[in-house]
Design a binder for these strands. Sequence first.
DNA 1: TATGAATGAGCGTTCATTCAT
DNA 2: AATGAATGAACGCTCATTCAT
Lengths: 188, 188, 188, 188
Amino acid sequence: MLATAAEVFAELGYNATTVRTIADRAGMLAGSLYYHFDSKESMADEILSAFLTDLWTGYQRIEEAELGPRETFEGLVTESFRQMERHRPAVVIYQKEARRLASQERFRYLSDSQERFQQLWTRTLERGVADGSFRSRLDVPVAYRFVRDTVWVAAVWFRPWGRKSAAEIAEQYTSMVLDGIATHPVAR
Amino acid sequence: MLATAAEVFAELGYNATTVRTIADRAGMLAGSLYYHFDSKESMADEILSAFLTDLWTGYQRIEEAELGPRETFEGLVTESFRQMERHRPAVVIYQKEARRLASQERFRYLSDSQERFQQLWTRTLERGVADGSFRSRLDVPVAYRFVRDTVWVAAVWFRPWGRKSAAEIAEQYTSMVLDGIATHPVAR
Amino acid sequence: MLATAAEVFAELGYNATTVRTIADRAGMLAGSLYYHFDSKESMADEILSAFLTDLWTGYQRIEEAELGPRETFEGLVTESFRQMERHRPAVVIYQKEARRLASQERFRYLSDSQERFQQLWTRTLERGVADGSFRSRLDVPVAYRFVRDTVWVAAVWFRPWGRKSAAEIAEQYTSMVLDGIATHPVAR
Amino acid sequence: MLATAAEVFAELGYNATTVRTIADRAGMLAGSLYYHFDSKESMADEILSAFLTDLWTGYQRIEEAELGPRETFEGLVTESFRQMERHRPAVVIYQKEARRLASQERFRYLSDSQERFQQLWTRTLERGVADGSFRSRLDVPVAYRFVRDTVWVAAVWFRPWGRKSAAEIAEQYTSMVLDGIATHPVAR
DNA sequence: TATGAATGAGCGTTCATTCAT
DNA sequence: AATGAATGAACGCTCATTCAT
């Protein structure tokens, strides 16, 4: 039922989704949802926190592996797509609604996650610049945003049941971001 | 006043924005807005169509210049960031709401634009693959989505009044997407 | 301009008529009407009181002529249709809105007129019953309503500029009401 | 609850009636009405279509009886007053609002009914003229309007719970319209 | 005289939520 | 567990009215 709610939120947007719509799809009446959930907000809460918990569990494994910057980079992107496969609707909701929701105390963990995310990526990029894996003239704050958006925005069109698996997409993304789409790029 | 509405839409989302909020910010009462606009929807309409008109005017100049694929690519990205500078809130609205709005007849031009956009980019990428500017093994549909999202999603955090100009950001983006962020990339 | 207002009120109904519509038809903006009138209500007021003044002037001439009941009857019906010719929109408004408006102090004269009207007709009918002009078993209160409605409701479809003049219609109505539409009626 | 709405519509007019007034009278809040009805308009719809359905069921019985013109006339008037007894508020609404509502597709059946009504009465009057039951010089279109309005407008003052039953009023109306209110009428 | 811009009350409607059953 | 009926706050919008120009 939470899965149903997540799909509807992802499809229509949180605000545009009525509890009636969720209830319809779950085969019950709007009032009946309240036996299972405190509120519409708490549905979003459960959906998002389940996703972020899984995501950080995955990320932690990578951090603990203490790989080089490029391998960490690849690991993080791959893990992100893997989670997108499991939690696609949650990712879409996160993408669209996190900013708005984060202003509420109850969704504080969204901002916290955002911050951890930024630190993790920034550290990885900086390590890469330091050890020569990444370009020396890389503007890390801009590159961070670039990578972050680039990965997550894919959730909007990515369909795990489509022709390409998460791993394939991840591989393509990694290659594009790391090596670019042009030929003969000059090392800088 | 349209600018005010655009900012609020971008900040809170179209659905979450009430006409009272817009009116507050514009220093008037909700009813007064209706002297200037037919409806909330028509505000979004004017905002989005003004943006898309300007955008396509810019793109057309680039198309007509008949540049090589790489230069066209750079031109399109640069033009996109330039328009983002003028129409930042409109871009955010487009980003978040286009899918939902496009289902209405009045916003048909959103889908039309989307399609033109896809053709323009796809053609450019294919030309680049054909003439060797871009990697031969490039998955064009995936790369198209990658570039499209990557550029526009920047509107969410991009602030023209920030430290970096649109041209600077565009240059960094182009370089990241074309040449990658890693060093010594292998040509494929 | 009052004529314009009257036409619109008659056509659309008082409530459904906006001052904007009246202003449009008068070739000005809504606000400009207020240079000429205190309020929408006062327009209705002027329209209705002008009509009733004329009507009672006409009726008074008939009363003063001291005719027999049948001739009085004919005179009142004819005068009513004559006024309908001059004040058609006002009659329609009266017909549709009098009941609602009459509850307001400012429209007290509507109820007053209604009452005078009832007395005038009732007296005429009773005189006719007394002197044998009208049927002895006539239920005067019911007949009063019958005649009253019968005459005024015609304003809704009556068009002075149509094929039939007010005098012709009045003649037909009088004959129908007095003598009936059937043949060989039995005197009672 | 539909009955409550009908009474308020009849009393105040459709436009002047607010859903809050209806809700007040029904002992609930405005929003609660929408659990039972789609819209204010659909309330009017249900009220009017229920009335017209009953009315035409009654009329059909009379048509199928294949009576003479005078008996058909009496039957139709009597049936009309009978329906007025059951659907008085609906009749008032019909009387006042049909013209305005009929312009909407959803109320198309109002115009349809109007037309059937006209045909039915016109046919009856013409049959009466043809077989000598009604006056040979009768202006059928005018007489039709006369009868139509005369009957239905009674709904405004008619109270079934008053001193007179629908059947009594119908009998008086029939006699007035067929035979007139004057004595010694000349057959024409 | 007329305009343009605004006001503010109120309208029909929606929707998350409650609660007795 | 679920329903059916209701609540009440808020929403987009309308409109009679005001008023400086």
